[in-house]
Design a protein around this nucleic acid. Sequence first.
DNA 1: ATGGTTGTAGGACAA
Length: 266
Amino acid sequence: MLTIATWNINSVRLRAGLVQRFLKQAGPDILCLQEIKCTEEAFPREPFLELGYPHIAISGQPGYHGVATVSRLPLGALPRESFCGTAEARHLGCAVMLPDGSTLALHNIYVPAGGDIPDPSANPKFKQKLAYLKALAAWQADNGGGPAILLGDFNVAPLETDVWSHKQLLNVVSHTAVEVEALTKVRTDGGWTDLVRRFIPPEKKLYTWWSYRARDWQAANRGRRLDHVWASASLAGRARSATVLKETRGWDRPSDHVPVVVGLDL
DNA sequence: ATGGTTGTAGGACAA
């Protein structure tokens, strides 16, 4: 079984201890991080080396954004995409070398959050988010149709059950119709399968993010499912599990996102 | 309806 996790960590330097706690507990073979908020040079490598993750790929920048993939298995490099014409570090593609000698294309993405106003003509950040999703839909995972995973912080909650209140979030960035349509086009045009909803029924409420701005995040429970793991058609049938590790949101000085872990029969 | 918090950086901005 190959296990892969994704987690928007909201500063990997500040939360290296939390990441270690998660790795010791869940022990995934590969962890994809978003919002590392540091450059490649400033990335804390030692905590991962200590726990048996010697393969580390990083796309970073000072202060904001940034993605990294850490792995027990060797990683080859795949071309890095911008998807929105900016230099922001929001994508990292790796070729995972599997024990049988084959490779798995693993694309770790951090979709722009999109600001507060859901109007591309009034809000450049929302315009950038829609452009990113449009470019992502047009992009083909450069793996010759082989097995591929697309995962990360997509910053869109597509289903009604992916938010605490569908009605109250219809005009809130992350759950507007135009974003849901754009993300759905990415999934259908790319032939991707939402692995998490294969194991947790779409009828069931499911969140991976809870705002820092609630007095009591757990009592309010106003969450959204922003973090996703998708598989290519050839790989989807090999998925065996999907788990959301909600308890990490209750850890000391947590990220506002929690990890999502999938298991694949590879 | 509004404001609520966190991180990076060392003020405003992103989320």
